[in-house]
Amino acid sequence: MSNENMLSRRGLLMKIGMLFNGLVAIALALPIVRFLFSSVTLGRGNGYLSWVPLGRVSEFPEGETRLATFQNPHVMPTDGKTADTACWVRRIEGDQFQVFAVNCAHLGCPVRWFQTIRFVHVPVSWWSLLPRWLSRVRPTGTRTF
């Protein structure tokens, strides 16, 4: 065996040093990656899916659609006004309600309900008016109670 193929003591120490650094890097990377992805699981166990009151029943006349505002169940002290949000609530009759997301399912822009004409105006899409907006938003943004 030639000397070139032999591992010197310093060479071995260098490789052990690299291995040691690699192990430390992995050990540090785990909490760093976990921290980075914490936003994915953030709020799951913090009442995020809890029920929120939107107001008294008398505030929602039958057959009308009203804007309701509420605070997100999961908020941070630095959220300011962004902790609040809104939704459209339609009281069909009696205790039957439909709740619509305030965002259009097209791009997420806010939509406006005009009570006098009983239509939703969508600001951005050329293609969307009331029927389509309803049909698109219903699967994810609408709840009937």
């Binding site: 936003s39 709020g43 997100n72 999961h74 941070m76 962004t82």
Partner: peptide, 19 residues
């Protein structure tokens, strides 16, 4: 959904998003 939460820093646009 994962990309959105990574982008916003949570489920909604709020303080974490701006940071």
């Amino acid at each position: 959904p994962v990309i959105v939460k990574l982008m916003l820093g949570g489920p909604i646009i709020a303080g974490a998003t701006l940071s």
